[in-house]
Design a protein around this nucleic acid. Structure first.
Lengths: 192, 192
DNA sequence: TCCATTCTTTACAGGTGGGTACATAAATAG
DNA sequence: CTATTTATGTACCCACCTGTAAAGAATGGA
């Protein structure tokens, strides 16, 4: 009972996520969050408790939407190499189309000192682990079908690819040269 | 003429670099900088002008010391694969020995929104380019001597390795599992 | 010795940060 | 209709942030 919320929690978290994504945790102000969510300070603190708690919610929301979409992309049919290549090409398109060069929120969180301890570190680690597992499964499929060589352990291959993936996202932040990023993609695929 | 400085500029920049490295640009306060450098606010602002200008100096200092040391490591004699492997193994040792998990300052700078525009972005880009060139030279050497296959363009190989290198540094921030990181190393070397 | 110059110290300014208190509004249960 | 519960809006707190002003301390040169 009691007075009902005038907003959807998820919509507010989505808006907050955008703020943290653009500015990072430290640089984002509670005023930014109020403006973007459309909430007054009272409502925002009543609903989420603190800036940091809202940040954690935003990271969870990112995992459940953006990161999840990436993982689903890997489950589509077709050759394993094509799926992994499409994952990287999709990232290049998305990152270069974004004028703010926000990159990956989880990766940004890992970069800030506040993201290397406590609950945030756990959320980031989980997203990294999920990606590792998804790639690992895919490599196993490729090795089973004979598309990929089975000379090296699947987990090692998966981890090397994952690493190249994060490196790609880092590079996409500082370079405007698509050719550089495409070299990374072809290099990573050739290494499978 | 005039009253002489009571400190060495480089020592102050080194101390400031440590602060930015540990906390990031946004979270570092001018008070942190004063305490760590041992300077009063007046001296600090007189010498460096602003927090942001000092940040740029710190990045330059990082490039001239830490990053430069990495590049020199690549110039030592021996097989190309060994040199590139040692680069990565050195990073694993350094990153895991660091309780603060600070990682690479340039990479951290790229993660913060303030590091994606203006002078800071340029400084970061330059460090990335320097590493790309160093690896590229090394791959060319390896291909010329026959140690590495010449099937793929040296620049592509170099860029893929560089990408894995940055991915490794990202992963080193969130995982405590050395085996994961060693997989990345072996995967990246095998891809040469 | 006196001056111009540069550095150091201290105090402070103006603004902004995250967070809270409180009065008011909107709903339900009885 | 009243009591209770929950949400909203406003006003506010106070700690802290970056940057500056001003006065005193060292230097070199005339």
């Amino acid at each position: 009972m009691g007075r009902p919320r005038e907003f959807r929690d998820e919509a507010a978290v989505e808006a907050a996520m955008q703020v943290f994504w653009e500015k990072g945790y430290e640089a984002a102000t509670t005023q930014d969050l109020c403006e973007r969510t459309g909430l007054g300070r009272g409502s925002l603190y009543n609903a989420f408790g603190s800036k940091h708690a809202l940040y954690e919610q935003a990271l969870r929301h990112y995992a459940a939407t953006k990161a999840e979409a990436q993982l689903r992309m890997l489950d589509e049919p077709g050759p394993v190499k094509d799926r992994l290549r499409d994952l990287m090409l999709g990232v290049i398109d998305a990152d270069m189309a974004d004028p703010g060069r926000r990159g990956c929120l989880a990766l940004n969180a890992a970069g800030e000192a506040s993201g290397r301890t406590g609950a945030v570190a756990g959320l980031v680690r989980r997203q990294f682990d999920d990606l590792e597992q998804a790639i690992h499964r895919l490599v196993l499929v490729g090795q089973a079908s004979g598309e990929l060589s089975s000379e090296r352990p699947a987990l090692q291959v998966a981890r090397a690819f994952q690493s190249a993936y994060y490196g790609l996202r880092v590079l996409a932040k500082v370079t405007d040269d698509r050719a550089t990023l495409l070299d990374v993609v072809e290099g990573a695929i050739a290494a499978l």
